[in-house]
Design a binder for these strands. Sequence first.
DNA 1: GTAGGGTTAG
Length: 475
Amino acid sequence: MQRFSVSRFLWLSVHVKNFKVCNLHFTTNSSAEKYYGVLQKNPKNVERTLVTVKAKLDSNCVNEVLRRCLPGQSQMAIRFFIWAGLQSSYRHSPFTYNKVCELFKVKQNPRIVIDVVEAYREESCVVSVKTMKMILNLCEKAKLANEALWVLRKMPEFNLRPDTIMYNIVIRLFCVRGDMVMADKLMKEMGLISLYPDIITNVLMIKGYCNAGRLEDACGLFKAMRRYGCVTNSVAYSALLDGICRSGSMERALELLGEMEKEGGDCRPNVVTYTSVIQSFCEKGMMVEALGLLDRMNACGCAPNRVTVSTLIKGLCGEGNVNEAYKLIDKVIAGGSVSSGDCYSSLVVELVRTNRLGDAEKLFSEMLVSGVKPDGLACSIIFKELILWGKVLDVFRLYEEIENIGFLSSIDSDIYSILLLGLCQESHSVEAVKLARFMLEKGIRLQAPYVGKIVEHLKKFQDKELLDIVDHGLC
DNA sequence: GTAGGGTTAG
């Protein structure tokens, strides 16, 4: 009876999922079909004919057209992508930008970007600043600094003039690459065409100088930006402060922090500012100073958040001071800015990471008993570690309890597969069925690397007919 | 445009 159930649930879970996928394709296929058909018929100057298509444009449709262009029609795909992004009814999400880079391997084949721009030129296409911005965004996603610069330089040939946002995209790419010579050249160049570096340009440059170890240049720029009238704010201050902290000058950092507190207004340190200084103190093992800053931020009316607390907990657990971590949590919870669930979840995570699995498990159970909801990371990390130590059944019990009290946050999807495999291996068939049932309800599929091993175990049951179903359903 | 634990979907 149990054997029957396991196989059946695995089979069902796969088929429910497949049904959803088919359904989705059905609704998007017709639009995608129309757009793709037009692309095939008119490979030259596709933009002119795409406008004539009367079909709904949404992210599913865009993804489907892109997928159909695979392999080999990368230029067509990118041109469709750019055209779609220019339509007023639709906007690409960052996900779609990443998707197109991944599908057409834009990073590995940067020539794609250049070919598109050259094709626009050869076909005398109408190209706007917005078109160029989208191409620059693609370069940014694919981290193509040289190609982005090439696009920027190409703009005058289309009678277009780059704006500050476009310069910022290219400057960011060179800053990330650590090429501050080029970044600086571009920033100076802005002035020559009557563009003014804004606060974003300056923050990028300050961060770039700090990362490149050129702290004095970062400070110089910070002072200079005020001279030429760019109003500074807590983001610019924080970028500089972070650089100073990372260079190890903690006294200088505290001085600057004091300056920000004194200045107030837009320069007032915020939770990010304080947290970054706290993090530096923690990394240096200076926990007294780090905790002191928590009091200082509270006194200045800035409440700690989840990141602040987890940074301090990490520091305290790292030096073995778990008791102090508990005291800290009491204090923060009393302050009311971070929930007890978030605080104790961070502690569970750090206890696991500092090899105190027993303490972590105890705390985790206590949280459930007292109605404190653990977050997704705490669940994922403790489950994985317990499974690693062979405590498969304990994990199942915890999981079941969390499900029953409705406390489940999103956990890593591979946990289900690992746990099911563990339960099968240890012949806990009742629990395996229950887990399969939970998976079925949630539409969670088995992950490919575990399918074989689970099937192998089921084969021991020697129920050929059911095994066939599982085999066909899962592979 | 600033700190930063994991994944999910689009």
